[in-house]
Design a protein around this nucleic acid. Structure first.
Lengths: 213, 213
DNA sequence: CGAATTATTGAAACATGTCAAGGATCGTGG
DNA sequence: CCACGATCCTTGACATGTTTCAATAATTCG
């Protein structure tokens, strides 16, 4: 299955579509959010798209007994807020200090066309995430997460972790203790260094890629 | 979090969009596939959409060490084959005897618009599946699966299982033994009956819904 | 009917979760 | 600038759910 590496992160290369959206929308001013602020709630009316100007956004849902699943993170330059119907299925929060721009369609048709591309990229990412959640163990999940972040930050070695361990855990379907344990294990095996709690240096990228599968 | 039940299966109610797609495409003749036949392979050029006429389709990927994840099932009336770029990220196979129609766009603009809806529904479904894979245990996963099938088959009590245990397992991120054990457990607890290996009768739907969360 | 496949069930191994304690980090106010 | 409290992170010990391996039973198909 060598083929699959060709697709990895295909969804991440969407600069062109971001430009497409921007060209046919009227961006509003940037709104600022502190860490942990609600951008929109589950059940809110949907309709507008958002672009992360700086900072980090998490898309979440909480079940009745309090378990939380984070379905996606969004970083600077990425677009979120697409919904299938008139209500939001997930709620969106800022992870750290975050600036967000609301996008309003100006040229309907072209905007729609760009939206399709954004939708397809979100779909691809969700599908990739399905692979990770369904069939990978803890170490493989964390390796995949770190490599994904590295690719999206366009930094080949030094990765920023704006979110806390608990966010990573709820994204990967693990407990935060397990995430912590795996990170120290990777550190001890020499695959990564942890210069700071919120910063990981990828040392043995081949090992991480091997882990990811 | 009572809100979330309102969204469940929202993505499944897409008859309108299927009609939208059909109105602006030139459906070809129906192709027939035996159980386990390849409809398209990973890495194949993408472009065409497909509609299931009868039978069942599974969308899969296999990792280098042989673990398989099924990202979605498609049943009669449902559309699949949407991709973010020119190559297929997953491969598609028939689960049982299946009839499939290729859809070719005739009116580009309207076809595109319908595609957006299909994409958003696929996205919603993938996101719902993320919730199940990330934060539910075996019994909850199986309950969610049975209720999803019941909703899509529009049969409130008797659910057909065209796929084998192994397919269910690879869809839910479990081993097929665990799937089997959970089904017998649900049978013993009186939540379901298993009149046939490939047919489940939902007895205590409230219990299943409670399990699903 | 018989062979091959698929499903069920059991026992033991393993990964991850849970509970609990201690340590690090951060922000705030003195 | 330091000290304090609060939050977050790490680590350990134990409990639990799930997988794995193995054997048997059921089903399908020729």
């Amino acid at each position: 299955m060598l083929i699959q590496t060709k697709f990895r992160n295909a969804s991440l290369d969407h600069a062109a579509d971001v430009n497409g959206i921007l060209a046919f929308s009227q961006p509003s001013a940037v709104s600022l959010y502190n860490a942990g602020a609600t951008i929109y709630g589950q059940g809110d009316p949907s309709g507008q798209l958002y672009m992360v100007e700086f900072g980090t956004v998490r898309l979440c849902r909480v079940s009745s007994d309090g378990r939380r699943q984070i379905s996606a993170f969004y970083f600077a330059g990425e677009i979120f807020g697409l919904e299938a119907d008139e209500q939001r299925h997930f709620y969106a929060e800022s992870v750290d200090n975050t600036g967000i721009r609301v996008l309003r369609p100006s040229d309907g048709d072209k905007f729609n066309e760009s939206m399709l591309k954004v939708a397809l990229q979100s779909l691809t990412r969700a599908q990739e995430h399905l692979m990770v959640l369904g069939r990978q163990n803890g170490a493989e999940k964390v390796a995949a997460f770190l490599l994904d972040l590295a690719a999206r930050q366009a930094s080949d070695r030094l990765v920023d972790l704006p979110m806390q361990r608990c966010d990573i855990a709820d994204y990967l379907g693990l407990s935060f203790e397990t995430v912590s344990r795996i990170l120290t294990k990777l550190k001890c095996s020499g695959a990564i260094r942890i210069p700071h709690v919120k910063q990981i240096e990828l040392i043995d990228i081949e090992e991480l890629e091997y882990l990811r599968g």
